[in-house]
Simulated scan of single mutants.
Amino acid sequence: MKKLLLIALFFTTQIGCAQEDATRGYKVKVGEQAPELNFTLMDGTQHTNESLKGKVVVLQFTASWCSVCRKEMPHLESKVWQQFKNEDFMLVGIDLKEDREKVERFIAQMQVTYPFTIDEDGSLFESFTLPKAGVTRNIVLDKNGEIIFLSRLYEEKEFNEMIAVITAELKK
């Protein structure tokens, strides 16, 4: 009986891992409307789904303790923000569960100039992800607020695919 329970537990665990691998920790999918967005940038500007309409938007979930985030951020600054900031485009760094002072130091250390907000309780992050999902994520929204690209971690090929998606969307 114990052996049968262990086998059942093993397969249940494997199925759960396979499902998370397939979703990459997201509970949203490409083609869906973004969940409700309501956040205030560190400069005091408030944004909602409605205020972001008409712009291609990249939501970058990050944290100061995340080494992969730190690896990706200079690329986001130079290859995404600097390239598209003068178009109908917005890149928002969304720091996960850290205080303002720490986030300000993080932004200064990383030398990024794109706007930031702080997801103090993680609810914005959790509106896109499965429980206990890891950070380092980029979510690209089209001008109507539909999800058109989801990334996880930093991998150059996928990062370049994201840039191609942004470029194509801005040309529409």
Rank of each mutant, 00 (worst) to 15 (best):
L150D: 10
T12E: 01
K2H: 07
L96G: 10
T48G: 05
L153I: 09
E126T: 08
C69E: 01
Y26W: 06
V58D: 09
E77G: 11
F39Y: 07
I107L: 04
N49Q: 10
A63T: 07
R105A: 05
E169W: 00
L141V: 09
K53E: 12
F89R: 11
A133F: 05
L5S: 13
L37F: 08
V80M: 11
L59Y: 00
R100E: 15
K132D: 11
I118L: 02
A168C: 00
L5T: 10
S123R: 06
K79S: 11
S78I: 03
V103T: 10
A63K: 09
K143E: 07
V58N: 08
K85H: 13
Y114E: 06
E77K: 11
N49R: 04
V30N: 00
I94P: 00
I163T: 02
E126R: 12
F116A: 08
W81Y: 13
K53Q: 12
R137D: 02
C69K: 01
Q82R: 10
A34V: 03
K97M: 15
E156V: 03
E36D: 15
K102Q: 11
H47E: 14
F125P: 03
V57Y: 04
D43T: 14
R105E: 05
T129W: 01
E20T: 14
A133S: 15
F125M: 12
E126H: 04
Y114D: 11
V140H: 05
S151T: 15
I148M: 09
G54F: 04
F128P: 13
L150Q: 10
I15E: 08
A18M: 12
L9R: 02
T45M: 11
F149H: 15
F159I: 01
S67N: 13
W65K: 08
T40S: 14
L141Q: 06
E101L: 13
P35Y: 00
Q46P: 06
G93I: 03
Y26G: 09
K29A: 14
Q19T: 11
E36Y: 04
F10N: 02
E87N: 13
I94F: 02
E126I: 05
V135H: 01
L5K: 15
I94S: 02
L130V: 06
G44Y: 04
R70P: 03
A168P: 00
F106R: 03
I15M: 12
N38S: 13
V92T: 07
I166Y: 03
E146M: 06
M1Y: 13
Q46T: 15
K102P: 13
R152V: 07
V92M: 05
F116G: 11
T40L: 07
R70G: 09
K143F: 01
N160K: 14
L170G: 02
E161V: 03
F61E: 00
L91F: 04
K172V: 01
D95S: 09
V103F: 03
L141K: 01
A18R: 09
L153G: 14
V165Y: 13
D121S: 11
S64Y: 04
V58E: 11
E101V: 15
G134R: 02
